[in-house]
Structures are given as C-alpha cells and as structure tokens.
Simulated scan of single mutants.
Amino acid sequence: MIKKIRRNIIKNIFVDLEKEEKWLNKMCSDGYALKDISNGYYIFEDCNPNEYIYRVEFIKNENTYENKESYKNFMQEMNVDLVSSVGRWHYFRKKSCLGEFDIYSDIDSKIEHYKRINIIWYIIAFIFIFSGLSQPFTLIQSIFWGTLNVSDIIVNLILIIIGAYFLTLAIPLQKKISRLLKEKRLHE
C-alpha cells in the first residue's frame, strides 16, 4: 500500500534535520518505508516495522557529476541507498539488520555538516532582514512628501519577520555547533 503525506514547506524543509530523521524512522517503525519525495509529498510504502534506518544529509555543493557519482557509489558500498533528493537534501536508508547507520560519526564531520546548514539560514535571514530594512529612507521620504503607502510598510514588516524566522533556525544550530566545539576541545 502506498501512503502519501503532504510536505509542509515551513514545517518539513526548514526544520531541524534530527526531527525529520526521527519522524522518518518512526514512520518506518509503524511499517511505512520512505520510497520517494515527489511533487510536495512524502511517499511511503509498506515495510516490516523497523526494517530501515533513515538519515538526512545536507550535502556539499559538489559541482561535478563525477563527485556526485563517487559519493553515491561510496554510500552503496556501505549498503546505504539513496531514497530521494530535494535540492541538496539527500534522504538515505540502510537495512537495520545490517547494523548501525550514522553518516556523521565524528565531531568534526558533525560540525562541518551543521555549519553548511547554518550558513544557508544566516544568508536567507540576512537577505530578508536587509530587504525589509533597506526601505526606511523611502518610507521617511514618503511620510515627508505625504505619499505614505501602508502596503510598503506591511511588506517590509513581513520581510523582517521572515528573516527573523530564519534566525530562529540559525541560532539554536549555532549553539549546537558551539557545544560540539567545546566537546572537541575537551577530547583533544
């Protein structure tokens, strides 16, 4: 049986990847294996409960076909299948009977992975906040000339709110990176 669950862009793409992994693994424990992500839907198929272990990775921007194929072949050698990709987000699974499955087993690789994600959040936050704040002089001039347009104010506020939302994603991830860096220093 095929089961489709709509992907909520805000809830499922711009979230903590560990939460998404937990959810995918919970679905598998309930007997639904992720088969694909397509047209805004997670597509699941029946499976034995806990048949797979899922991991989500935000890969580096590998520009060449050879790099992508090399990485895919490496994962296949580790008995890991690429289930689906959405942009740079890759969804992997491994049969649970084959043992543990962690993409990032050491502190340095975890830090690098979180930094790749976090830089995206900071860039998006900066773009929206800067766009929302770049208009104050125009707004002041509009007030002075008596041509104030309320829709401009609303648009700027919305841009700032969206930017603040992305900061709410970046700041906790930055704290996680800081904790990992402290842990790394303790082990050195």
Rank of each mutant, 00 (worst) to 15 (best):
M1V: 15
K11F: 09
K11M: 08
F14V: 07
D16P: 00
D16F: 08
E21V: 08
E21K: 13
E21L: 09
L24Q: 03
L24G: 02
N25D: 12
K26N: 15
M27I: 10
C28P: 04
C28G: 04
L34V: 06
D36A: 13
D36G: 05
D36F: 09
I37N: 05
S38C: 07
S38T: 07
G40P: 05
Y41Q: 08
Y42N: 01
Y42V: 01
F44Q: 03
C47F: 01
E51L: 08
I53H: 02
I53M: 04
Y54P: 10
Y54K: 08
V56K: 04
K60P: 01
K60C: 04
T64H: 12
E66R: 10
E66N: 10
N67E: 14
S70N: 12
K72V: 00
K72T: 01
N73R: 09
F74N: 08
E77F: 01
V80G: 02
L82R: 11
V83R: 04
S84G: 09
S85Y: 07
R88H: 11
H90F: 14
H90N: 14
H90I: 04
C97P: 00
L98I: 00
L98N: 02
Y104A: 00
S109R: 02
E112I: 12
E112T: 13
Y114Q: 10
R116K: 14
I117P: 10
W121K: 09
A125N: 12
S134W: 10
F137A: 06
L139R: 04
L139F: 12
I140A: 08
Q141H: 13
S142P: 05
S142Y: 05
I143Y: 13
F144T: 13
F144P: 03
V150T: 15
D152W: 11
I158D: 05
L159K: 08
G163A: 05
A164Q: 10
A164P: 09
L167V: 05
L167F: 07
T168F: 06
L169T: 01
L169N: 01
S178W: 12
R179D: 09
R179F: 06
L181M: 13
